[in-house]
Amino acid sequence: MQETIIKFAPLLLEGCMDTLYMTVLSTFFAYLFGLPMGIALFITKQGGIAENKPFNAIFGWVINILRSIPFIILMIALFPVTRLIVGTIIGKNAAVVALSVAAAPFVARMAEQSLEEIDSGVIEAARCMGATNFQIIVKVLLVESIPSIIRGLSITTITLIGYGAMAGALGAGGLGDIGIRYGYNRFQPNVMYLTVVLLIVIVCLIQWGFGLLARKVDKRNTKVKSFGVNFIGGAKGVARIYKK
């Protein structure tokens, strides 16, 4: 095993960097498109600030359809689009296109869910105070849902790592690609185990980091203000989770 680690360290490191590159970029683009989609879903639903039932129904269906296409099929179906945008259908950048398109509708539903958590009375109060719909979106919806959106961000990122490994099968690079090429195609299970361990570590770190961040920015249930106390509280929470 030790030999394998030493021999494959540079390759695995490169794989890690590729996986992170694809995950970060596609998460960014998924939110760039998905977040406005989620807001659009939320404000046009029945009783929303810009109620529009036909739009909401049609848009909801489009999102459902996009979400139900298996990723690997979506990726292949997107080849012409991908080629148009990045000029090629293989490699990291090509994968980012497919990953972003796959994740955007997912993000839309996650964002919608986060916005649903906001007390409708607060939105009503803002309307009473003369807020425009745009002000409600920017100053109420996005501000009040930040902790929940951050928690959603960790779920999206981790899902994208999983998808990214799948994209590896189509020549995208990254840890998933290494796992398949060496572990499966060349019968080197040790390499595959290593990639899996690395993926586990990355996922745990993301979950932990975003969890801590969400707790830090959430001003509900804060009895103490100082960062230090919150940090210790957060660490204790993490320790408790690990004990379980």
């Binding site: 007390d119 009375g121 607060v122 009503e124 109060a125 105070m129 920015v217 959430d218 001003k219």
Partner: peptide, 14 residues
Amino acid sequence: MGVVFQGYNLLMQK
């Protein structure tokens, strides 16, 4: 017209 609500309806993150 200032409105005061039973449930306060304050922004919890502010």
